[in-house]
Design a protein around this nucleic acid. Sequence first.
RNA 1: GGUCCCAUCGUCAAGCGGUUAAGACACAGCCCUCUCAAGGCUGGAUCACGGGUUCGAUUCCCGUUGGGACUACCA
Length: 480
Amino acid sequence: MTKRVRVRYAPSPTGFLHIGGARSALFNYLFAKKNNGDFVFRIEDTDVERNVKGGEESQLNDLMWLGIIPDESPMKPNPKYSPYRQMERLDIYHKYAQWLIDHGYAYECYCSEEELDASREEQYARGINAPKYDRHCLHLKEEEKEKFRKEGRKPCIRLKVEDHLTISFEDMIRGKVSFNNDDIGDWVIMKSNGIPTYNFAVVIDDHLMEITHVLRGEEHLSNTPKQIQVYKYFGWEVPTFGHMTIIVNENGKKLSKRDNNILQFMSQYRELGYLPEAIFNFILLLGWTPNEEREIFTIDEAKIIFDPKRMSASPSMFDQRKLNWMNAQYIRKLSDQEYLIFIKPYLAKVVDLEKYSDEELLFMGNMFKEEITFGAQIIDLLRPLFNYHLEENDEIKEILNLPSTPMVLHCIKHLLENVPDLEADTLKQLFKNVASETNTKGKFLYMPIRLKLTGQMHGAELVKIIKVLGKKEVLSRLNK
RNA sequence: GGUCCCAUCGUCAAGCGGUUAAGACACAGCCCUCUCAAGGCUGGAUCACGGGUUCGAUUCCCGUUGGGACUACCA
């Protein structure tokens, strides 16, 4: 019997869920579900300085919003693997770090930052390209340690990396990858403040939580040999690694949280009116392709067809236009009821929701359902109907000064007053009548009316605009 | 600089030794149309370079070039 597949998404709560994190979580989740395994949500909060209040909660909420539901998390712990926050596991790391020291695989280091810098500089000066820790503290005697402690120095713990060892592993995405240990210095596993570093804690946790597959961003590729060294010292089974391509911006650089040119937080997309299904689908296609031409997939379909072998090894550029297209596809598939709920927050920016029935609100929304790529767009599309403002430009003046314009406006006012209702068929007939009575058609007929009603050259279908505004308002605007 | 990763249209990419080198987004043109969209149709556009291996390389190997990641007592 093979081991149950267990994977994890382990963010540091230093910010909100962004595109890269969501992608990482998504592929881990799909991989777990494809294999009937567990998807674990763990918090890596060992960088105490950078932790953000509410980071964990928002990460988890945004994940669930996307439809990625962890099987285990700090909120939903399995006692066998608890706790799920690294800062609550400090005694565990201490125990394992001590074991490494006792077995000669790790040692205390009392070097100060200044001494470390000096050593690095000195190595550069000697023409060494890859300076590493000089093992100054490797064979410290107890008296020397005592002396340092009296000076007030607090030691960190370094892993004694094995010399002349080639560490290779079979990456799920990249195939065989090898590193030479001689390029890696004795790195810190426990900081002098008693908190483990990421590369150490991650190994302890992944082992203890029985993680079988580690799918993560390519930025971790060069961390992997360090981590494998720890596995090796403990004699633990090494999980299968898979390093996904990073997501880059238009300049080909890794998406940075400080990059303001691209929206990259889930919360921003949610607020703008992107649908979680669309984002899920879009991210799914970022670095992965299905074995068919179709590109629109539900989450449940993705769970079935996902195949990690089809993940790309080359970087993916984040293409907002394709996301927009994808989102538009999903918006159009919404039922009336879903669409109404979706659109209400944006309608509320333009109209007083209390004043309209759901039916009327839906009608307003539906004017632009085929047109918008995200929900908030409806605000600007709808606003001209309620905040009339006539643009002043030559084209508009020309239309308003057309010889036929006064006639057209006069005629429609007259006919509109006697119309029984504002249904589409009635209004279409009305326009036909205006056309024949004034002998105009096309833009000579519609544009003057559109400008009178909305002040703009373009917008939704005129018959719909009339219905939304109501007869009284339409007549009043035509009279201005 | 060093280590590692990557390289097909503008973008995401299929391809896995013999193909008219898919598809999607974007773009252009046409149709539809009061306008803007949407929709329909059509079109342009890609194998970085140089060596091998082979009857035959986009595909395999090696270089070159280019891009990226990492290079912390961050994760």
